[in-house]
Design a protein around this nucleic acid. Sequence first.
DNA 1: CTTCGGAGGTTGTACGTATAACGTCGTGGG
DNA 2: CCCACGACGTTATACGTACAACCTCCGAAG
Lengths: 335, 335
Amino acid sequence: MTDTARPTSRDVARAAGVSQATVSLVLGDKWRGRVSERTADTVRTAARDLGYRPNLAARNLRLGRTRTALLVVPTITNEYFARVYTGAARVADDHGFGVVLYPSPEGVGPARDPFGSARAALDGVIASSMAADALAAIGDGGLPLVMLDADPAAPGPAATVNLAIADGMRQITRHVLGLGHHPGDIAHLAADIDTWTFHERAQALADTLGTTPPTERSPLAYQDARRATERLLARPGPPPTALICDDDVLAVGACKALRGHGLRVPDDVSVTGYDDSALATAVEPELTTVALPADAVGAQGMTALLDTLADHPATGTELPVRLVVRGSTAPPRHP
Amino acid sequence: MTDTARPTSRDVARAAGVSQATVSLVLGDKWRGRVSERTADTVRTAARDLGYRPNLAARNLRLGRTRTALLVVPTITNEYFARVYTGAARVADDHGFGVVLYPSPEGVGPARDPFGSARAALDGVIASSMAADALAAIGDGGLPLVMLDADPAAPGPAATVNLAIADGMRQITRHVLGLGHHPGDIAHLAADIDTWTFHERAQALADTLGTTPPTERSPLAYQDARRATERLLARPGPPPTALICDDDVLAVGACKALRGHGLRVPDDVSVTGYDDSALATAVEPELTTVALPADAVGAQGMTALLDTLADHPATGTELPVRLVVRGSTAPPRHP
DNA sequence: CTTCGGAGGTTGTACGTATAACGTCGTGGG
DNA sequence: CCCACGACGTTATACGTACAACCTCCGAAG
């Protein structure tokens, strides 16, 4: 079980009857023309027999880099960030890098220092959806940094990868308008998260409508979204004919509330989501929403980090989003 | 930006006019009675001014442990595993540990060596839902190991944390029978994943019913589940009055297929899921399902690993699951 | 006046690895 | 016959840290 100790390269050397340096050369694939084929083979079998694994800590110390990046996300229990991770990990793996995940405990704005808490030694950091000032409070640790979905209004020295969030909101709003809904009959179910990406949504919506719609705010959970929708319906005057939501989760909660009031989706009220998460196609009717290329965000972020590490100047990128029309939107009944 | 180099503890020592050892003592909180309050303060401000951060690689090498655990999961784009991670990370954090995630690329059964690919230096490994032989193929790297949801039939030396999967299936089956459904009218929509946990489900279902139900297999995706359900409905004879599914995703797909055939849930057909994922409460009607304490699995796994590292003998644990009755099940129409 | 002890440090070393710099053969050309 | 040179390795060292062991005062006890 718990063997006395893990074998080191020196143990392998002893077993193979060579010096530690030779072991390092052979196992590091740098032995061509410096070690005979026969000796190399002896070393390799000795290593295998002993079950040798290089000590990563020692290697990292010697090399001065770890081929490891830290990905800071608000939470991993969320499809979007899970997919960002997947994209980043894929690119990293192709370049012999690893990705360590650090979900900042308090959602946006970390309670403690990820650079220390993620115990792994790091080469660079990718921070997703973090307020720039929160990151500043942490201190950058002197590490190369890439920011994902960062507030462009508070620019730092870091390379950035952003989504065309506002454009997505414009697309979906124009879609609803194109169906014949009147700007005055459209309401907004907003996330009550105080992040620029949600401010952008509201801004783009108002701009495209030409007016500021009736708005309720809700945390990202069904029950909350339900209550918020009910508050919206309790307002005086006729109910809206279309409800634009900041997130798929909100849209799902809204649909439940609407049905509870005898309103059918999309016959009486059209509903839209945002994110195109797995939920969007699970519910009935399936949600009209905006698809975000989450893994592309992660992949692009990792690429930018690798470029930075290779001393290529990494620049800012904006990735497009895509409107996905499904069954939750339809023309209004009385045009 | 990219400063010439990160400051080391020796740089701090120079700046504070003390030796490197003193810096290490002060910053390591081991200076009581060995360094004067005044000197300690000098060191701390010097460290802060220089923006000193200890080199984790060096520290890990020196200490011979990294306070880092590896969590191997089939995929992170899955609520269950994300929650396992969350639970493990919470416990780890309480003990000054970090958790590195390694999604084995090919789902179950890794294409390559996680011990190498996860670049971080490790103290131990927690492997979730991995076939024992797959892990054996990897080699255990001599690291302490805890297995989550591992096949109990192929026991290894590792500590285990398991869910009472079979019991959950028995509970949900008894619930359906209790509603008045006849054993002959119950069908099974199974996951076509060849893992013991799904074998257990089938076994427990058959045992509780007293007969082997009509079964279709499907990958864990809506569309596939739809098609599988249609195959089930296409069979000769009357349709089942209840459909027991191996997973919430399958249940959601099944509901869609049933509605497509003009069958109402739960009026015509009762449907059950498994996992109690976010989906379960998103769809209409909400799913009767089995709730799995995913974060408890992760937390217990990490606890077991910490115990193992502390040389306490870690043993096997089984965590209970809980039936959650919601709207997708009802008595049959013609009892 | 010695001696002892504790406060307040310092010196030295090891962790395991990668690699630069340095041997040591045998062989073939001059 | 000697020397240079390639083939094959080895020796030595540094990475940055933590801590054991050691040193040096200075005041008080004997």
